[in-house]
């Protein structure tokens, strides 16, 4: 009975803290809603491509979850103390570009591995569609993920909830591009190259790259 009382006290303490700091709960609610929405967008595309299989949707969902997990490792956990030393040596933009390029390289290796595993498990023929174009799209998607999640890592580092906020802030920004990636790969699987969609993907990459160059100096200075 004594232990039961203790458990009850601790449970009620957590509940009252949750109500007091409602932002923690509401941020997880937003994250939940975004994840559900990504799946909702994916199911729409999957219904359209029932005759070719919908591994493309699953591949991009995997890539989003992997990049949420991996990218903060290179940005969030690297902005604790050592950057102060780097910032005394180089301009913040240079630091940012180097960091982004390195993370893109790592994530590209991981995505190739993911692609290979998908190929083995799903038995899809690799020459089914325009493979070089698929790699261009892959590079575009990954570069965008790295830029947005990198920026939101630096934003989250300053906020109260820390690491959690990276995904919460990043996923809504990534959502439209994920929808674009679903659509582009859907067209590629049917053997159609949609130049407008690929151009829009590249354009959004260029815009977010220059924006991040402009905004990053405001993020690191205290």
């Amino acid at each position: 009975m004594h232990y039961f009382q203790q458990v009850k006290k601790l449970f009620l303490k957590d509940l009252s803290l949750e109500i007091k700091h409602f932002t923690a709960l509401s941020s997880s609610l937003l994250y939940l809603f975004c994840i559900v929405f990504i799946h909702y967008l994916g199911i729409e595309i999957a219904e359209m491509s029932s005759n070719t299989g919908y591994w493309n949707v699953q591949f991009w969902l995997c890539m989003v979850l992997i990049s949420i997990f991996i990218i903060p490792k290179y940005f969030y956990f690297s902005c604790k103390k050592r950057p102060l030393y780097y910032f005394s040596l180089v301009m913040p933009e240079i630091f940012w570009i180097a960091k982004v390029l390195y993370t893109t390289f790592i994530l590209l290796l991981i995505s190739f591995l993911t692609f290979l595993i998908f190929g083995i498990l799903f038995f899809f023929p690799f020459n089914f569609f325009h493979l070089p174009y698929f790699f261009v799209v892959l590079l575009g998607g990954i570069f965008f993920f790295v830029l947005t999640f990198g920026l939101t890592s630096f934003l989250a580092f300053r906020s109260r909830h820390g690491y959690l906020m990276t995904a919460v802030l990043g996923i809504p920004l990534v959502l439209p591009v994920v929808a674009l990636l679903f659509k582009t790969t859907l067209y590629l699987m049917h053997g159609i190259i949609h130049p407008q969609l690929i151009g829009l993907l590249m354009g959004s990459n260029v815009i977010i790259f220059f924006l991040s160059l402009l905004l990053f100096p405001y993020l690191w200075q205290q």
Binding site: T23, S26, S27, L30, F33, C34, F37, L151, T152, L155, R158, S159, R160, H161, M165, V168, L169, P172, L173, L175, L215, Y218, L219
Partner: peptide, 28 residues
């Protein structure tokens, strides 16, 4: 609307440091 609700969440997750909060929010 989801993107802008993330903006409000970012706003609420700072309590004391007004200047920092403003800077992060403007970037987002």
């Amino acid at each position: 609307l989801l993107i802008y609700s993330a903006y409000f969440l970012l706003r609420f997750s700072f309590t004391s440091h007004i200047q920092l909060q403003a800077k992060m929010n403007s970037v987002y």
